[in-house]
Nucleic acid binder design. Structure first.
Length: 414
DNA sequence: TCTGGGGTCCTAGGACCC
DNA sequence: TCTGGGGTCCTAGGACCC
């Protein structure tokens, strides 16, 4: 029997804000924002005033004087996000989680047991509402891209089922920016060429789209506009990079400033690399200046590393080289480190001649001591929390505007 | 005190190899 | 006068997504 794939895209509405309204009934029906310096999530009542996530808190307050800033229930976000995804898993093992509040599920093989895809979606929505108290929107379609668009159209707290017989009618009337991969820049380029709907994009020649947007993007969007989406559900996806960044406001571009910040960022990353035995071979830093222009520098090493101090020293060297290349830049506004070319853990463990983390030979005293120190600190943090111990110079009171607990919500499994 | 933080993918050019 | 050709790796930058 042929199993036709039927994709659900489930997306919790205004997730962090909805959780806060769930936990505190006094906030329900009111414009609220999670965050402070920057809006991390806004309730639909706040969105009515134009408040959007990513927006500076001050701007949000201007738009909505009665806006209530709240938040901070990070463990609840994680618990409720997991619980909602688990409801999906009751209907199929083919679940691809995209983020804390969003997932695809292929229920094509589940219809005998649980009914039509649309019925499953209704049940999931009702259960998430009844069992968790949260609104969730779901799109149902034959392909991932269409299911994703359908859930966007369904929001807030809705369900849209795309009939396989009328897919293009549904798709072609919608604006291009609903497509996966069309952001502000691409939208502008398309608009400059008179293309504002997905139907207009579909009617344009593929060659013209590739000239306008580049080969890969042009091809992809042309295919998606005709609802040709070959992507299948991927249940297990490992991260290909791990990074951390910190906005600094405006700080002098001196080593005294950037060294402790980079040490802190390196520690966050290296600890994750060690936890999953996935050392990195490429280290990339990003320096953003006061005017928001950003510069990156990368180096690929002959051997993988995961020691905090090694990662930090490399990042410090790279940032130093950036600043030497831009001697007129006196002020920096953000520092970031990204680790990529991550190793395969199994291979790493079995490699008998594996180099020590810091590139020193395993037998040397310095290499041993450094590895031991990292592992000891990892163990203490595992028991007592990330703040329990830290490299002295990385202990910065108000280093970041976003708490580390919040950062970890966005981390992918390595 | 305008503009967070964690990710993925693509492009273009240069180095280097055969 | 012209000046291989393909493949892989690396770096820097950009766009996008949640």
């Amino acid at each position: 029997m042929e199993v036709v794939s039927a994709i659900l895209h489930a997306d919790l509405d205004a997730f962090y804000a909805s959780v806060e309204q769930l936990l505190n009934p006094a906030l329900r029906g009111k414009p609220i924002a999670v965050g402070g310096g920057v809006v991390l999530a806004a309730s639909y009542e706040a969105r009515a005033f134009g408040v959007r996530s990513g927006m500076p808190g001050r701007r949000a307050r201007e738009l909505c004087p009665d806006l209530i800033f709240t938040g901070g229930h990070f463990t609840e976000y994680q618990r409720l996000g997991d619980a909602a995804i688990d409801v999906l898993r009751d209907y199929t093992p083919d679940v691809e989680r995209i983020s804390i509040d969003e997932a695809f599920a292929d229920v094509g093989g589940s219809t005998q047991l649980f009914g039509a895809p649309g019925e499953i979606a209704k049940t999931v929505r009702a259960r998430v509402r009844a069992e968790l108290g949260l609104p969730i929107s779901i799109g149902v379609a034959r392909t991932k891209h269409l299911a994703k668009i359908a859930s966007q159209v369904a929001k807030p707290d809705g369900l849209v089922i795309v009939d396989p017989n009328t897919e293009l009618e549904f798709l072609h009337n919608l604006p291009v920016e609903l497509m996966w991969g069309v952001g502000p820049a691409t939208k502008e380029r398309l608009a400059a060429n008179g293309i504002e709907t997905i139907g207009q994009l579909a009617q344009s020649s593929p060659q013209a789209m590739q000239r306008l947007l580049g080969k890969a993007v042009g091809r992809k969007l042309t295919a998606l506009a005709w609802n040709k989406d070959p992507r299948e559900i991927q249940t297990h996806r490992r991260a290909t990079s791990a990074g951390a960044q910190s906005a600094l406001g405006r700080k002098p571009a001196t080593e005294k400033v950037f060294r402790p910040v980079l040490l802190h960022l390196a520690e966050r990353i290296a600890r994750r690399l060690r936890a999953k035995d996935r050392p990195c071979r490429t280290v990339t830093v990003r320096v953003r200046f006061a005017d928001m222009r950003a510069v990156t520098r990368a180096i690929t090493l002959p051997a993988p590393i995961s020691a905090t101090t090694m990662l930090a020293e490399i990042a410090i060297d790279l940032v130093g080289s950036v600043l030497r290349d831009y001697p007129d830049e006196r002020t920096i506004s953000l520092l970031a480190i990204s680790a990529s070319h991550l190793g395969e853990s199994v291979l790493q463990l079995e490699l008998p001649f594996k180099l020590a983390d810091d590139g020193l030979r395993p037998g040397t005293r310095k290499g041993m001591a450094r590895g031991r120190a990292d592992r000891a600190m990892d163990a203490i943090r595992d028991r007592f929390g990330a703040e329990a111990v830290t490299y002295a110079s990385a202990a910065l009171g108000s280093l970041s505007s976003v708490p580390d607990d919040f950062r970890s919500l966005a981390e992918k499994d390595l």
